[in-house]
Amino acid sequence: MTSNTSLSERIADGIVAMIEAAGLEPGDALASSRELAKRFEVTTPTIREALRRLEATDVIRFRHGSGTYVSGGVNRRLLVNPHVSGSRSESVLELLDARIVLEPPVAAAAAAQRTEIDLAALTRSADNSLKPQHGDERPELHFHVALAGASGNHLLRETVEALLQVRARDQIEIRHRYTDRERDHADHVRIVEAVRDGDPAAAEAMTRDHLIAIRDTLAATLGTDVTEQHG
Score class of each variant (00 low, 15 high):
M1A: 07
S3P: 05
L7R: 14
I11G: 06
D13M: 10
I15F: 02
V16L: 15
I19G: 05
I19L: 03
E20R: 10
A22F: 01
G23C: 00
E25D: 08
D28P: 09
L30I: 13
L30V: 13
A31W: 07
A31D: 15
S33C: 10
L36M: 14
F40R: 05
E41T: 15
E41P: 05
T43N: 04
R52K: 14
L54D: 07
D58S: 07
R61E: 15
F62C: 03
F62R: 15
H64A: 11
S66Y: 04
G67E: 04
T68L: 11
G72H: 11
R76A: 08
R76K: 04
V80P: 00
V84N: 11
S89I: 00
V92Y: 03
L93A: 00
D97R: 14
L102I: 09
E103H: 02
P104T: 11
P105K: 14
A108I: 00
A111M: 06
R114H: 14
R114E: 09
T115A: 09
E116L: 11
E116N: 07
D118Y: 06
A120Y: 09
L122S: 05
R124N: 10
A126T: 02
D127Q: 14
K131N: 08
P132W: 03
P132A: 03
Q133E: 12
Q133I: 13
G135I: 01
D136W: 14
E137G: 05
R138Q: 13
R138W: 12
E140P: 02
H142N: 15
F143L: 03
V145C: 10
L147H: 08
A148G: 08
A150Y: 10
A150T: 12
L155R: 12
L155C: 09
E158Y: 01
E158Q: 11
T159G: 05
Q165D: 09
V166G: 02
V166E: 04
D170G: 00
D180I: 02
H188L: 00
V192M: 01
A194R: 02
V195N: 03
R196C: 03
M206W: 09
D216F: 03
T221Q: 15
T221W: 05
V226G: 00
G231D: 13
